[in-house]
Design a protein around this nucleic acid. Structure first.
Lengths: 163, 163
DNA sequence: CCAAGTTTGTTACGTTATAACAGATCGCGA
DNA sequence: TCGCGATCTGTTATAACGTAACAAACTTGG
């Protein structure tokens, strides 16, 4: 199985290659897990990989429409459900928007660094933090199902541009 | 200045007293900082303290309407802006909803334990975690402006109720 | 008291998301 | 290879969340 790339989107990189590798990794994963990357699902994933930033459901829906696929909201929300459920994309709560997963591996509790200007999102994992949260939750007898850690601010480039 | 209470909402407690003390703390804070807790702002805050769970803007708007105050969305969103800006309430991104602050002190990076069944929210602070995030952000040359850490799951009571 | 700034309230609209259902497609077993 | 159950696509319609723009009322300080 191809390994998905895991890197810092805020660094310059060969974007063509990054998209291609990420798509290959998802295709491999789908094949291995017998998941169907149908046309609308693939269209949404490719849009996210291409833009490489958090996109709203309605921006993605425009892509579906342009591709001659469904043009109504449920189509894009269902494609997103599939991508989120299988770890190929993430929802950024703060923006009500979505990004392709850049972290590679399956289930993981990620920290998202979200630039409010360019909407690019870097994904990091902090295992130490996850342990802290576990401890905190167990003190409250709380059963954890989902963790969202979102850091909003400005990436170096946008901060430099005087945003 | 009265100290606001800081406790675990998932534990049984004297709710009447908890509301009264929290309101007193906000009044004191407003007086100290020359902030105006006007009728719509107070109405929204009291609703949040009374219900003691995450409430949507439109639920809060119903309260304003019942109180004979404004009945259109901008009124409640402005009151919420005031409460959020001054640390008297928090937005729970995951739910597009709002809770009264139960943590007492001013600016703080909190961890929210959000029960998806009853919508009660426990607020904890994890200083160690904040330091981790700082380190992570600086590695990416990212300027942090706002941090949201939300843990979704089930509180002990709702888990027990077989949710 | 007056002027400047702040707050409330309104109308109108834009954005985000889901329910319910019909028809198309897929994959498997007879 | 046929057909049946499960899955997926697409539609219409509507609900939930949020903001722009502007007029009127209130508050505060000179």
């Amino acid at each position: 199985m191809t390994e998905a790339p895991s890197f810092d989107v805020f660094q310059p990189h060969d974007h063509r290659r990054c998209r291609k590798e990420a798509l290959a990794a998802v295709l491999a994963e789908c094949s291995a897990r017998k998941l169907r990357l149908t046309p609308p699902r693939r269209c949404v994933l490719e849009a996210l990989l291409e833009e490489h930033r958090a996109m709203t459901a309605y921006e993605l829906l425009d892509r579906l429409r342009e591709a001659g696929l469904g043009s109504q909201p449920p189509v894009v929300y269902r494609a997103l459900d599939f991508l989120l459920a299988n770890g190929f994309a993430h929802r950024i709560e703060r923006l009500s928007a979505f990004v392709a997963c850049t972290h590679g591996e399956g289930a993981h509790e990620a920290v998202f660094l979200v630039c409010r200007a360019c909407r690019q999102v870097a994904e990091a994992s902090l295992p130490a933090l996850a342990r802290n949260l576990e401890a905190e939750a167990s003190e409250h007898a709380f059963r954890v199902e989902r963790v969202a850690i979102e850091v909003e601010g400005l990436c170096a480039r946008c901060a430099g541009a005087g945003a």
